[in-house]
Design a protein around this nucleic acid. Structure first.
Lengths: 149, 149
DNA sequence: CAGAATCCGGCGAGATACTG
DNA sequence: CAGTATCTCGCCGGATTCTG
């Protein structure tokens, strides 16, 4: 079994008055771990989907489109280990496994949504910044090799 | 020049009433992009540091400890392109380049801090979930190969 | 000092095949 | 259906070297 958290980095903060501390002690810091989970390629999708209702494995697989069965399993295991989703196995044939958000998961999703909201509110500015940066970079390149046809 | 955003995935939401939509149209979605930026291994550190004051390249390099010069450059370029940090070059010898958070960057940091705060408030629960999961997994393995010595 | 360019190793992730 | 196991490949990121 692989572990995606091994290369975790220490972003350790206290409260607002004690921001950036202990950059070197990276072992005991949970922030990076949760961030990895949140930013995970598929975690976010899973959390958003499960926020609406509990879903079966194959339901998630179909809903997410593009996720491999392996990565969905790995993602769900991680989320389960972090206490964000719960896994319920029904001993029937064919097997049935339901996944749903725990209260902790719901709580996390609230915070995530604020980040999503922020992005939506600022994506104009970001797009503008991209355009500005790219044109600047293009102008820069012009100076180096001016073929300005 | 490399681009870490090419494999972006579409986590597209509208407002609260229009949560999970268009999982397949992944091109026009900015959320994933920002998330990649936020979750980036070093971005967070840079943002947190620059929130206090403007800093030079080598200052950041020393402050962050563990970052390679290449990755710091790449990180800063990404953040600059997204309009999160600004880059100021002083045409002196030796060269001096200052980086600082833009208003957009400050705004983003506010949101990030809420995520950090959430993590701090719940890391007990997360740790408990880890312990529970691991012991369950261990018990599971016991059933398969019971060598219970 | 601040960076660009190049090389290269490790692992994250997809595809495939097998199981209960 | 809901996984696990194995193999492989791409590219992310560190180290190194070279400039202005």
């Amino acid at each position: 079994m692989e572990d995606g958290t091994s290369q975790a980095l220490g972003y350790c903060t206290g409260t607002e008055d004690d921001q950036v501390r202990q950059w070197d002690t990276r072992a005991d810091c949970e922030v990076r771990h949760i961030l990895d989970r949140v930013a995970d390629k598929w975690s976010l999708l899973v959390i958003a989907l499960l926020d609406r209702r509990a879903m079966r494995f194959s339901e998630l697989r179909r809903a997410i489109d593009g996720v491999s069965q392996r990565m969905l399993t790995v993602t769900l295991r991680h989320l389960e280990r972090d206490g964000i989703v719960s896994r319920t196995v029904y001993p029937v044939i064919p097997p049935r496994v339901d996944y749903e958000l725990t209260p902790l998961g719901v709580s996390l999703h609230e915070v995530i949504k604020s980040l999503v909201t922020w992005t939506e509110e600022h994506q104009q500015q970001i797009a503008a910044a991209h355009a500005a940066y790219d044109s600047r970079a293009a102008a820069e390149r012009e100076l180096v090799s001016p073929l300005h046809g």
